[in-house]
């Protein structure tokens, strides 16, 4: 394995986590990561040494996700699965986690993305700006709105029948 391949491979677990949080569907997420990797392996020349490899890879995943026209449908399918699995008994914390999962899914893709990139992946706002190709100011205001929206949604769990109508 070349040094380049080692560096990329080291980032793969985080790319998968990011993709999982974006799509909430393990297989769709892995497809996304694989697509990203296939683009990345041969592109050493396009990546400038010294720049942020992680942000660069997240950017590729982001672009693949946007291009993935069926992502929305897949996410909806998965959401249905989540709903169906909800009938069992859960501890309070599990119910809260399920609530977060569902509410994340109800966010727009743009809002979900900044929340995941900042809150889960710990990217700086500058890095997020380069990933989503937007000014830092936009990242900050979008993040504020996204988190507040998620907070509101979580405080008011949506009734089952409304979700099923999607």
């Amino acid at each position: 394995m070349s040094n380049w391949e080692k560096q990329i491979t080291a980032e793969v677990p985080r790319l998968r986590r990011y993709a999982r949080a974006l799509t909430q569907n393990p297989s769709a997420a892995d497809d996304l990561v694989q697509e990203c990797l296939e683009r990345a392996w041969g592109k050493q020349t396009q990546w400038q040494t010294g720049t942020n490899l992680r942000a660069w890879l997240f950017t590729i995943v982001h672009n693949c996700f946007i291009n993935e026209t069926r992502a929305r449908n897949r996410a909806d399918e998965y959401l249905d699965q989540v709903k169906q699995s909800e009938t069992g008994s859960y501890s309070d914390s599990n119910i809260e986690l399920l609530n977060l999962q569902q509410c994340l899914q109800r966010l727009s893709q743009e809002h979900r993305e900044v929340i995941v990139l900042a809150g889960l992946e710990g990217l700086s706002y500058q890095e997020i700006a380069s990933v989503i190709d937007a000014p830092v100011g936009t990242v900050m205001s979008r993040l504020s709105r996204a988190r507040e929206e998620l907070r509101t949604l979580m405080a008011h769990p949506i009734p089952d029948n409304v979700v099923k109508l999607k």
Partner: peptide
């Protein structure tokens, strides 16, 4: 929110890498 995001998704980090991602 952040803490729960980690609870939801950190397990992915420990999943073995599929061969196709190598």
């Amino acid at each position: 929110q952040n803490q729960m995001l980690h609870q939801l998704f950190d397990s992915v980090l420990d999943e073995p890498l599929p061969e196709k991602m190598r």
